[in-house]
């Protein structure tokens, strides 16, 4: 790529928007992980697999309704619920019996869940590449800064803040949200005032996984849906949640923005090593601020 051409204002602007829409997807997925981490104090390694299941179920629902735009909206609505159901089953059947155990065991359980869910997806959907078409009015691209920008990415830019505001309203304004925040800070006390902590945890886990599924359904039209999606996203999610401050939702937003933007600008500056840039950013941040940029809830 010609250097002079690469650094025009238009190129920077459109890369900025690309990075921003990537950051929105990352934020939807990571906010779920951050929520689980905040309440249960477990980094859910299976989160990426749930994201993958979200994408695959979105594909199935979309195909079931003849690949129409109704199918797309239904997929967007139902796929996260499928994921929430899967996580509810896993949580009530197995995970909830481990809350009293050592922390590392919880972490390893989620890893076991990742291994199992990953293979189940392969078993159900197979290893082929799949894709979803967005409804007609979200297809194609519009011109921003003189360069084409996909309309679907604009849609993502709207969805991201909606999820952020919704989650903020949920945790700060509803009773359940307040209980879950309290359980994050002092779980014994929450139990002592007569609240069933086990169900609070179940609720938090399911909500977190719902967001993973939503992220998967949202990302499906922009990428090819295939096995291995889980491996790609989970480390990114891990790192975003860490650099933001464990369990802090706004920190997760900042982390997602850093990750998305460094990656998209990396493509502009040095395409071959574009995937390296976010990791460098994470390393720098963790060395500068070992416990994340914003205050952790731990």
């Amino acid at each position: 790529m010609d250097i002079g051409q690469a650094f025009t204002f238009a190129a920077l602007g459109s890369q900025f928007l690309v990075g921003l829409s990537r950051a929105m997807i990352l934020f939807v997925v990571c906010s779920g992980m951050s929520f689980v981490l905040g309440v249960l104090r477990v980094p859910n390694i299976a989160h990426g697999s749930l994201y993958m299941i979200g994408a695959f179920s979105a594909y199935s629902i979309f195909t079931l309704f003849g690949q129409s735009s109704t199918g797309f909206w239904l997929a967007l609505f139902l796929a996260p619920l499928v994921v929430a159901l899967v996580s509810l089953i896993a949580e009530r059947a197995l995970f909830c019996h481990l809350y009293e155990r050592e922390h590392l065991m919880l972490l390893l359980f989620t890893f076991a869940l990742m291994l199992i869910l990953g293979d189940l997806v392969k078993l159900i959907w197979g290893a082929e590449y799949r894709s979803i078409m967005a409804p007609p009015f979200l297809r194609g691209s519009i011109s921003i800064f003189g360069s084409p920008f996909p309309r679907y990415n604009l849609f993502l830019l709207i969805i991201g803040p909606i999820v952020a505001i919704g989650l903020w309203l949920f945790t700060n304004k509803t009773k359940i949200g307040k209980i879950s925040r309290a359980a994050a800070v002092d779980r014994e006390m929450v139990g002592a005032v007569g609240i069933n902590v086990s169900w609070v945890f179940a609720g938090a886990f399911v909500i977190g996984c719902y967001l993973a599924g939503l992220g998967g359904a949202l990302v499906a039209p922009t990428v090819s849906v295939t096995i291995g999606m889980d491996h790609d996203i989970i480390i990114e999610a891990f790192l975003i949640v860490t650099i933001g401050g464990l369990g802090n939702m706004w920190g997760t937003l900042v982390g997602s923005l850093i990750f998305g933007l460094t990656q998209s600008f990396g493509v502009l500056f040095w395409p071959q090593f574009a995937i390296v840039f976010p990791y460098v950013a994470v390393v720098v941040i963790l060395i500068w601020r070992p416990t994340g940029m914003l205050k952790s809830v731990w």
Partner: peptide, 26 residues
Amino acid sequence: RLNRLYFGMLQISLGSLIWAIAFRWY
């Protein structure tokens, strides 16, 4: 310099950095 989970997280990011370099440096 970091404790427990943050230790692991920083290590994952540094390790992933090494992976990404090996993966891309054709």
